Simulated scan of single mutants.
Amino acid sequence: MASKAPPRIFSPTRRIAARRRMLGLQTLPDAPRYMIDDMVEDVLERLAFLRFEPASALIVGDYSGKLGRTLEAQGVQVTQAEPADGFAEEQPYPFEGFDLIASLGTLDTVNDVPGALVHIRKALAQGGMMIASFASAGCLPVLRDIMFAADGDRPSPRLHPSIDVRAGGQLLQRTLFADPVIDQRPLKVAFRSLDRLVSDLRAQGLSNVLADPGPPLSKKALDRARAAFADAGEDGRTVEVFEILTLSGWKR
């Protein structure tokens, strides 16, 4: 019996375009990268805590390059992969045998997450470790509420469906990772305006890549959203929350 194809929630074409735009925006002075910085720091802290010293590592999605540079300084042989450059996470990897695979900020917008995790596991050496971090359930609560209010009685799809802690655990179990660890942490950032939040989302590859993104907001709806965002804050700043889910496990 043929396996059932995963639902097409995200557009691969829009996803690649968003990441390419992100890579361009990241070359600008003072480009925001607090999401990737947080993920990189977390990976390094986990490796230090576990005293795990991989000889080889594959890093997927780290557009800052910080994780790779740090690991190379420790003597690790590093391979970098970027979806915007054609690396396909939902297909078998063209290389394997890594002691560590770190996937940063990409698995939240693939249609076949179990398949992507299976490919990660197959690309690991025996005894190798995966660490995958991405935006998760509970992310951007202020923006979600504002978009619903701005759209009125007929809301359009504007923000991504997300994986929560429970689903993350089920994914690791389903894809046969040993000693799985699942945790979620909030990253709070204050913004002076809705436009600045949207700008930061685009610059970090977090904009809408849904297969059916819905129509753009009308000018009146956008004005309502801007006003609602300002009203949700204090002293000219509105705090938004980015929830980061990290899945880790081993190939035994």
Rank of each mutant, 00 (worst) to 15 (best):
M1W: 14
A2P: 13
K4W: 06
P6C: 07
P7K: 14
I9L: 15
S11N: 01
R14C: 04
R14E: 10
I16W: 01
R19H: 10
M22K: 11
G24Q: 10
L25C: 04
Q26N: 13
L28R: 12
P29R: 02
D30F: 03
D38L: 09
E41K: 09
E41D: 15
V43L: 05
R46A: 15
L47N: 04
R51M: 07
E53W: 00
A55G: 14
I59Y: 08
I59Q: 04
I59G: 03
G61I: 04
G61H: 08
D62H: 11
Y63D: 03
R69M: 08
T70Y: 06
E72F: 06
A73N: 14
G75N: 05
Q77V: 07
Q77H: 07
Q80L: 04
A81K: 01
D85G: 13
G86H: 03
Y93N: 03
L100H: 06
A102G: 04
A102M: 09
S103C: 14
S103A: 13
T106G: 01
P114S: 12
G115I: 05
G115V: 03
L117N: 09
H119Y: 15
L124P: 07
G128S: 10
S133I: 06
A137K: 13
G138S: 07
C139G: 09
L140R: 01
P141R: 05
P141M: 04
D145L: 13
D145S: 12
M147Q: 14
A150N: 00
D151R: 05
D153T: 15
P155V: 11
S156P: 03
R158D: 08
R158P: 04
P161S: 12
S162W: 07
I163S: 02
G169Y: 00
G169T: 11
G169W: 01
G169M: 09
L171N: 08
F177P: 03
A178K: 11
D179A: 09
P180A: 03
Q184C: 13
F191Y: 15
F191Q: 00
S193D: 11
V198K: 11
S199G: 15
L201P: 00
A203H: 06
A203D: 07
L206Q: 04
A211G: 05
A211M: 07
G214D: 08
P215F: 02
L217Y: 10
K219C: 13
K220T: 13
R226F: 13
F229R: 04
A232T: 12
G233Q: 05
E234K: 15
E234S: 14
G236D: 00
R237V: 07
R237I: 02
V239I: 15
E240W: 02
V241Q: 13
E243S: 12
T246K: 10
T246D: 00
L247S: 03
L247K: 01
S248P: 03
G249L: 11
G249R: 01
G249Y: 05
W250D: 03
